[in-house]
């Protein structure tokens, strides 16, 4: 039981928690947060695989991949948040229209 094993278990737990939240939470922001948590778990696993046991021998390819992944995840998060805002806007507008229609009756 080395420290990398601990990090791998922690990363898998993060992935599972994120996936569970993605399925069970109803709020859009919470879902996007859950996807980000899942991504963090995956990044952690990638980095741990590049981490040598003694700390001197390090594979740098996973580092580059995770750097790329962090930037991609922030761009997808931003796009998802904008879409969530737009969806809420549409829902509100249609709700207002039906409310106005009910008031007329």
């Amino acid at each position: 039981m080395t420290i990398t094993t601990g990090y791998i278990i922690s990363a898998l737990l993060l992935f599972g928690i994120g996936m569970n939240g993605l399925m069970t939470c109803s709020h859009q922001l919470r879902k996007i947060l859950a996807v980000n948590l899942m991504a963090s778990g995956v990044f952690l696993i990638l980095i741990v695989t590049g981490f040598g046991t003694d700390g001197s021998a390090i594979d740098h390819v996973p580092h580059a991949m995770v750097l790329t992944g962090i930037v991609i995840s922030v761009s997808t998060t931003a796009l998802a948040l904008t879409l969530a805002c737009r969806i809420q806007q549409r829902l509100n507008r249609s709700a207002d229209e039906t409310a106005e229609g009910n008031d007329d009756d």
Binding site: Y7, L29, I32, L33, N36, S40, F43, I47, V48, G50, F51, G55, I58, H63, V66, L67, I70, V71, V74, T77, A78, L81, T82, A84, C85
Partner: peptide, 26 residues
């Protein structure tokens, strides 16, 4: 985990920019 590049990017993007994005969306 000996990944200072990723640490820098995570501190700036993962904590800073993503938090700001979420707060503005909220």
């Amino acid at each position: 985990l000996n990944a200072p590049d990723v640490a820098l990017a995570e501190a700036a993007i993962g904590a800073g920019v993503t938090g700001a994005l979420f707060l503005s969306a909220l």
